[in-house]
Amino acid sequence: MIKIKSVKMDAFDLITYPAVFFVFLLFLWMLLVYFTNSLPAFQREGLNVYLKNIWIASEIPNKEYYGILAAIWGSLYTSLIALAIALPLSISYSIFVGDYLPRKFKEFMIIVSDIMAGLPTIIYGIWGAFFLVPFIKNWVMDPVYEYLPFISKFSQKPASGFSFLSAGVLLGIMITPFISAVVREAYGMVPHTYREAAYSLGLTKYEATKILMGYIKPAIISGVILGFGRAIGETVAVSLVVGNAFNLSANPFSPGYTISSLIATQYGNSFIYEHMTSVLYAAGLFLFFIGLIINLLGIYLLRRWRKNVSL
């Protein structure tokens, strides 16, 4: 196909260019808003905004001091728990749906997964807060403290189920359908000839599948990266179960914050304080960049894989 480049804009361009321009502008504008609004926080505290775990909200501006390290930690921690749960589920799902299930059930499973992906996150939130949190408290946390005295020596009996663990599990459930979609697509794209090659060597289904999983590893990695991006950006469901406390703890049973839940819970009343709003924009900026980098990476890797997979 040869495209002849015309210097003059035609009617098509006149209609579409402004829209495209607007979307780019919107994105840059967003970046600018986050930059300018977080600037005061950087000027006042420097990178300590990100590097310290401290939250002094005072009506006397001089005494205010904020560092969101605990929230950054919480975002990473809960997202990693989520991935640890979502990854085995997604891979199993892709194999089971792709190889074992008869057509009818296959369709059903795929639709269920799509519903999970599209379900309003607040519904995960209410279920998380009223079912999952007590469930994890009663069936995971309490038994661990009761039956594993070794662990209970190091920390106190948890007061509630609101915790990194609950948030991680809920996020895991929420991101599984996204990762599954990527892995399932990739698994379906494996050229038939590699499948034949594996079986022709006298491998069992398990062994052959293991090899094919190795083949789609780049796609699995992009799925994981994109899932991580989803997990780290999720707000309301997490803020309803994570406990919302500044806690730089590796204990999965302790309550904590994530960047997005910090913004969701603090922004509403941040205007009472002189410096808090700017800190929250700085938190947003951090999320902005993490989101940007992670998604760019995930999308890039996925695209590259899709391109390479064709024979």
Binding site: P88, L89, S90, S92, Y93, I95, F96, V97, Y100, M109, V112, S113, I115, M116, L119, I123, Y124, I126, W127, F130, F131, I173, T176, S180, T204, K205, Y206, E207, T209
Partner: peptide, 30 residues
Amino acid sequence: RKLKDLLFLVITGILSLLMIIPLLHIIFTV
């Protein structure tokens, strides 16, 4: 090897089921 194969089927099946159980439970609870 055969045993591993069977185990593989069982595990992927259980995990797939485990993946959709939350949705069913959510719909049910709501």
